[in-house]
Design a protein around this nucleic acid. Sequence first.
DNA 1: CCAATCTGCTTAAGCGTTTTACCAAGGTTC
DNA 2: GAACCTTGGTAAAACGCTTAAGCAGATTGG
Lengths: 359, 359
Amino acid sequence: MDSQENNSDTPADAAVPLRQTQRAQPVTLRQVAEAAGVSTATVSLVVNKKKAARISDETRKRVRDAIRDLGYRPNAMAQTLVSGSSRFIGLVADAIATTPFAGQIIHGAQDEAWKHGYALLIANTEGNRELETDAIAMMLEYKVRGILYSTWFHRATEIPNSLRESDFVLVNCFSTEPGARAVVPDETQGGRSATEVLLKHGHRRIAFINATIPAPAKDGRLRGYREALEAEGIPFDESLVLEAYPDQEGGYGATEELLKRNVTAVYCYNDRMAMGLYDGLREHGLSIPDDMAVVGFDNQEVIAAHLRPPLSTVSLPHYELGAAGVRTLLGLEEPQASGPAKINCPTVERDSVRVLAPA
Amino acid sequence: MDSQENNSDTPADAAVPLRQTQRAQPVTLRQVAEAAGVSTATVSLVVNKKKAARISDETRKRVRDAIRDLGYRPNAMAQTLVSGSSRFIGLVADAIATTPFAGQIIHGAQDEAWKHGYALLIANTEGNRELETDAIAMMLEYKVRGILYSTWFHRATEIPNSLRESDFVLVNCFSTEPGARAVVPDETQGGRSATEVLLKHGHRRIAFINATIPAPAKDGRLRGYREALEAEGIPFDESLVLEAYPDQEGGYGATEELLKRNVTAVYCYNDRMAMGLYDGLREHGLSIPDDMAVVGFDNQEVIAAHLRPPLSTVSLPHYELGAAGVRTLLGLEEPQASGPAKINCPTVERDSVRVLAPA
DNA sequence: CCAATCTGCTTAAGCGTTTTACCAAGGTTC
DNA sequence: GAACCTTGGTAAAACGCTTAAGCAGATTGG
């Protein structure tokens, strides 16, 4: 729709009054019809490029000229009203901006929705149940095609009741309820990948600093670690798994314990812990990756890419989650046999891991 | 609207078939009217709580019961169609997720829009002009109340032509064109505040590591630095202003030069530079804040709050920008005499600055 | 007891589209 | 030249809602 060109032969600033007229009262189909000397049906047929419709080229042109001259834009509300279904997809998020994560979900959802001709309607609930109900109500009133219900960290969730009135997909969260479609990151595969990066570089004694707080990520990332070790024939050694609060302080605080383990590499539950650990190791005069190889998890760009040395890590695929959520909603994704669809967490290799020098 | 309670006297799982019926064919006003034995006008009046309308309590109750039993939701499209103006505000962003910043703008805009009964329609253009035109067209077709046009970093911008067909406000960017409303961060005040944090703690020889790349921020933050010094009667010393690429590497690389300046404090163009500088200072065995006080700019949470020690900085008020954008659009903000409205950049004091020990 | 007012509701037009059914005029066919 | 088809269009209903105008019946005023 490139109808904003100035195709009149008046000077450019003549557009100003025109514009204001338009702003006050948008041009309708009827006006176009009158201008072109045809019925509204004809204009509609031309606008929608109906192949089956029999409209002469001459009339078609008259209509198109009128559209351009008047700067006509279809009223999507009216279209929706008659067609019955809107081109909206709703996205309700519990924390739009607490982390860059939610932003990525929005981004992925928006791109994918757009690709299929849908617009994204977003609402932020800040974890507030009442706001959430209102937000969902609003979306239902706008007759959205469906709703993406997302959380900023991977967790189990309850399905709000009003959500059931619409088609919906859980994004980055899941429910035990049968039949609820959901997409989540594949934590186990991520944990496996993180560990494999270390294994690939020759490390055999690898510590894992897990989180203290329970979460699907905690279990999955540990499972992946075990799986990777076992695939290499390395017996799982419980004493190499530490736990700390999953932030910088936690990583920093775990340094002492870690050094007692006599390992050559460590896999941290997340990048923030790795960031803290960097400080701890540095204080002990140890260098990364020579004295200790480190991998993180999450790929929090601002941190991981800019630590010194840049941190090898595993990406939490938020963009993909948003996009896959939309595809699932629209039924474009293979339906899962059971449980949530698991999205791959790709490895991001940087400089915090190097081939282990022979001892 | 709490209409999803199950108020029938059938068992709870009777809700399932009901739900599916609804999904197929949403309940309309007319159906409610029939169920309640009144006209659609009456239902409409009850739904919209028109005070002036004369409806008996008994009828009112019958209608409300019918609404609840049927799970009626008004069709916002139809409402919009008749009222002529939608309750949408569009937000077009050039980079939704490149940084957490855009997320904050969305968040602020969403909250404020919501407060005034508007829903946010977002589009991400990734800097692509064609996508942008399409996105704006879509918003115009949905008859948005107005459009927020935002950029992820503060800069001058051209106003896309189609944007003019609607009410609009530039957010985090501006145009030289007269009459274009805009909201931007007050870089100069921010620079002043950053410097004042240092001055307040007794520092007098304060370096400024500015960015090499031209931007409103570069000029404004420098101006603020000068103003703050001059307000304290400290002459501006050009040799204390360094320049580096505004990222971690840049900050790290500036360490040597900085140390030649014999200063007790440094104000960095942004947090990422400060992060790099932390590394550089640490390599020289210097401690923050004892050997060098540091302040940053941007308040990029993931970095600033979690550096060791946590970094004092100045906040880029993205949330406020989004919110102020909405208020400006709705005409709730005092109109600016001229130029963009400048939003305050608040100081965030952490531990990277301490009172200067007497020499 | 008639007019005026009030109460409680309904009727119907209209918002901007889409779409089905239909129509008139001209061209073929036989 | 009647029966048919084709072409190029139009008329009108419908989508779900709001709202101004109207209309009965009850109540009040004089």
